[in-house]
Simulated scan of single mutants.
Amino acid sequence: MPIDDILTVKELAEYLKIAEKTAYRFASDGKVPGFKVGSAWRFRKSEIERWISEQEQKQEGGQE
């Protein structure tokens, strides 16, 4: 597994183009798939990409 496959909160925020506070809140609320290493959140890029696809499908499904 490449090291780039694991993202920090800051990297997730940059990847999703959202504020770090928002990324942290999404993680804390379970809105994005992540895990904690000690007290720090980490995210698998592959799971974030799958989550993005799921969000796109939800939006497409809601439109007529």
Results as ranks from 00 to 15, higher is better:
Gly34Leu: 02
Ala27His: 01
Lys31Thr: 08
Ser28Cys: 00
Ile6Thr: 15
Glu11Leu: 04
Gln55Arg: 13
Pro33Ser: 05
Val9Phe: 00
Lys31His: 12
Gln63Leu: 15
Val37Leu: 12
Glu11Gly: 03
Gln63Trp: 08
Pro2Phe: 09
Ile6Arg: 06
Ser46Leu: 05
Glu47Asn: 13
Ser39Ile: 11
Lys45Met: 05
Ser28Leu: 04
Pro33Leu: 02
Gly61Gln: 15
Ser53Asn: 11
Ile52Pro: 01
Lys17Gln: 14
Pro2His: 12
Leu12Val: 10
Glu60Gly: 14
Glu54Lys: 13
Phe26Ile: 00
Tyr24Arg: 10
Gln63Pro: 05
Gly38Thr: 04
Arg25Thr: 10
Glu14Pro: 03
Asp29His: 07
Leu7Pro: 09
Lys36Thr: 13
Ile52Asp: 04
Ile6Cys: 08
Arg50Glu: 15
Gly61Glu: 15
Lys58Val: 10
Phe35Gln: 05
Val9Tyr: 02
Lys21Thr: 13
Ser28Gly: 11
Tyr24Asn: 03
Glu49Gly: 03
Leu7His: 08
Phe35Met: 05
Lys21Val: 11
Ala19Tyr: 07
Arg42Cys: 07
Gln57Arg: 15
Lys36Ala: 04
Glu11Trp: 03
Trp41Pro: 11
Ala19Asn: 13
Met1His: 10
Ser28Val: 06
Ser28Trp: 00
Thr22Pro: 03
Phe26Gln: 05
Ala19Leu: 06
Glu14Ser: 09
Glu64Ala: 13
Leu16Ala: 06
Met1Leu: 08
Val9Trp: 02
Phe26Trp: 13
Val32Ile: 15
Ala13Gly: 12
Asp5Ile: 01
Leu16Asp: 14
Lys17Tyr: 06
Asp4His: 09
Lys17His: 11
Lys17Asn: 15
Ala40Leu: 11
Ser53Val: 07
Val32Asn: 06
Val37Gln: 05
Asp4Ile: 00
Gln63Thr: 14
Lys36Tyr: 04
Gly62Leu: 15
Gly38Tyr: 12
Gly61Lys: 15
Arg42Gly: 10
Ile6Trp: 06
Asp5Met: 06
Gly34Ala: 10
Ser53Cys: 02
Glu49Phe: 00
Arg25Ser: 05
Ser46Trp: 03
Ala27Arg: 01
Glu49Pro: 04
Ile3Asp: 14
Lys45Leu: 15
Arg44Thr: 10
Pro2Ile: 00
Asp29Ala: 09
Gln63Asp: 11
Arg42Leu: 10
Gly62His: 13
Val32Gln: 01
Gly34Phe: 01
Ala13Glu: 08
Gln55Asn: 13
Arg25Val: 03
Val9Ala: 14
Glu49Ala: 04
Gly62Pro: 02
Asp5Trp: 09
Gln59Ser: 14
Glu64Arg: 12
Lys58Gln: 14
Gly61Met: 15
Ile48Asp: 08
Glu14Arg: 07
Val37Asp: 13
Asp4Leu: 02
Glu47Thr: 06
Ile3Asn: 10
Gln57Thr: 15
Arg42Tyr: 08
Phe26Glu: 12
Lys45Pro: 10
Ser46Ile: 11
Ile3Tyr: 08
Asp5Thr: 09
Trp41Cys: 07
Trp51Lys: 05
Gln59Cys: 07
Val37Ile: 14
Asp5Leu: 05
Pro33Ala: 03
Ile52Met: 06
Leu16Ser: 08
Gly61Cys: 09
Ala27Met: 04
Glu20Ile: 05
Arg44Trp: 14
Val37Gly: 01
Arg50Asp: 10
Gly30Ile: 10
Ala19Phe: 02
Pro2Cys: 01
Lys45Asp: 11
Glu14Phe: 00
Val32Tyr: 02
Gln55Glu: 15
Lys21Met: 00
Gln59Asp: 14
Ala13Arg: 06
Ser28Pro: 00
